[in-house]
Structures are given as structure tokens and as C-alpha cells.
């Protein structure tokens, strides 16, 4: 009876085909746990995650690119070693641990930032452009930025150092360009490599972090996935994973296009 109602009597592949067919018409089915349409839950969660990841992307990518370039220009000096050291620490610290430490320091001890949640009156009324709402974004964004900062800093540093070792930089000096103009050439040459890594990190961030969103009770995709796993809410799980996969693939496609726009040699 139940088997028939949900179509479980058909082979798995067929079931998946039917589901995909419905997805194409925008029908992701109903959540087993809440009875509401999956699309509703999914897109609300996605919007919440995007708010966090956009913040992390802007903060982490720009910061990492700047300090990575700085270190790439000074390979082997103490300041380079300091930057690389911080980057290594950044990628090695588990971010759920950092999340808890940040909460202890800023929420519990100093009591300047909220520990959990999304806005003072819940996620429905959240408005990131208002300071007492924005406060709720700060700790999760810092936590999420940590790993991308570490990885992108390292990549930028080695890409910039590699470009600086190339012969054409000497030509740029020999023709009388100022250091700032040379920097532009160097950055443009280093960019394709950095973009590849940024794309991956962007994909991960868009996927939301189950651990970080759970610690901060941030109602994003990670939080949704966690809930769906625990309640065996298959339609939600399946829909969320499909959308995240699509985002990941699209990101990589966009990155590939950006790379060819920057470096004409990649066109063939």
C-alpha cells in the first residue's frame, strides 16, 4: 500500500527518472517531515546560505588575494614566512572548533556578538543591512572564511612568485613601467590559477557547512541537510543535493570561461 503510494515498487532507476521528470517541471515533491513543498524549504535555506557564503567569499577572497600577492612578492623573507604560517594554521584548524572558540570569546565572555540564530526576531524578518541583524552574520562568516583564506593565500602566493620568475617581468622593467603597472601584469598572469581554486572554494561555500550552520543554528542548506538526514526526509535530501551539485558544476563552468577570458592561451 504505502510502497505503491510512493512508487517504491518500481526499480530505483525508474523512480529516479520519474523524480527528475517532475523536478524539471519545478516539482520537488513534499517534505516528509513538515509536509511543505521541498522547493519552499530548499530555496529559503539556499537564500540564507548565500547570505553567509557571499560574505565569506567577499571577505576571504579579497583578503587572501591581497596577502597572497604580498607574500608572493617577498618569497623567503620573514613576512612571507609569517603569511605562509598563518595560511597553514588557517587550513589546519577545524572550523567547528574555531566556531566554538569564537562563540566562547565574543558571545559568552565579551558578550558583544550573538552566539546563535539568524536575527533578533528569527530568520523571517532578517535584514543584513541593519547592524543589530548584521551582528548575527559576523561569527559564522569569520568561521567560514578561515579555510578559503588559507587555501587561496597559498595559491596566490605561489602563483605570483612563479609569475615574478618569468622572463617577461624583466621586459616590463626594461621598458620602463612603474612597479604598480608591473603588478597589474603579474596579477593578470597569476589570476587563472587563483580563479581555479576560488571556484572550488566558492562551490564548497555555496553548499553550506553542516557543522558551522548547525553550531550557529543558521537555517541554511547545511542545516537543512542535517535535519533531513536525521529525520530521513528523502525528498528534501534528494532535492538539496541535486541543486548543490548543479551550483557546483555551474560555478566550475563559469570559472573555466573566466580563465579563458583572462588567458588567451587556454582557448584551444
Amino acid at each position: 500500500m504505502v510502497k505503491k503510494a510512493y512508487g517504491f515498487d518500481k526499480p530505483i532507476a525508474v523512480q529516479y527518472g520519474i523524480w527528475l521528470g517532475k523536478v524539471l517541471t519545478g516539482d520537488f515533491g513534499m517534505s516528509i517531515a513538515t509536509g511543505r513543498p521541498v522547493t519552499e524549504e530548499l530555496f529559503r535555506a539556499l537564500a540564507n546560505t548565500v547570505m553567509l557564503s557571499a560574505g565569506a567569499v567577499i571577505a576571504a577572497f579579497s583578503l587572501a588575494f591581497v596577502i597572497g600577492t604580498f607574500a608572493g612578492y617577498r618569497v623567503g623573507t620573514p613576512s612571507d614566512r609569517a603569511v605562509t604560517g598563518i595560511a597553514v594554521i588557517g587550513v589546519s584548524i577545524p572550523n567547528y572548533w574555531l566556531a566554538i572558540v569564537l562563540v566562547i570569546i565574543f558571545a559568552v565572555e565579551l558578550n558583544v556578538l550573538p552566539a546563535t540564530g539568524m536575527g533578533p526576531r528569527g530568520s523571517e524578518t532578517f535584514n543584513p543591512f541593519q547592524w543589530d541583524h548584521f551582528k548575527y552574520l559576523i561569527l559564522p562568516i569569520i568561521t567560514l572564511s578561515l579555510i578559503p583564506i588559507g587555501i587561496i593565500t597559498r595559491t596566490t602566493r605561489s602563483a605570483v612568485a612563479e609569475v615574478l620568475n618569468q622572463d617577461f617581468v624583466e621586459t616590463l622593467r626594461a621598458k620602463g613601467l612603474m612597479e604598480a603597472e608591473i603588478l597589474l601584469h603579474v596579477v593578470k598572469n597569476a589570476l587563472p590559477q587563483v580563479l581555479a581554486v576560488m571556484g572550488l572554494q566558492f562551490g564548497y561555500l555555496m553548499g553550506g557547512s553542516i557543522l558551522v550552520e548547525t553550531i550557529f543554528t543558521w537555517p541554511g542548506t547545511g542545516f537543512l541537510l542535517n535535519k533531513a538526514i536525521l529525520t530521513r526526509d528523502l525528498p528534501v535530501l534528494q532535492g538539496t543535493i541535486l541543486i548543490l551539485a548543479i551550483i557546483f558544476v555551474t560555478t566550475n563552468l563559469v570559472i573555466d570561461l573566466l580563465q579563458t577570458a583572462v588567458d588567451p592561451r587556454l582557448k584551444r
Binding site: D167, F168, T171, A174, K175, G176, H185, K188, N189, D263
Partner: peptide
């Protein structure tokens, strides 16, 4: 580049590829 200019040995790598 103004008073004195220089040409290098390797034309393959002396120009900026991008």
C-alpha cells in the same frame, strides 16, 4: 625604454602572454 632599451635572447618568454 626611453634612453636605453633592451632586447632579450628568448622571444618565446620575453613578452607577456596574456
Amino acid at each position: 625604454g626611453g634612453e636605453a632599451a633592451m632586447i632579450f635572447q628568448e622571444p618565446m618568454t620575453a613578452l607577456d602572454p596574456v
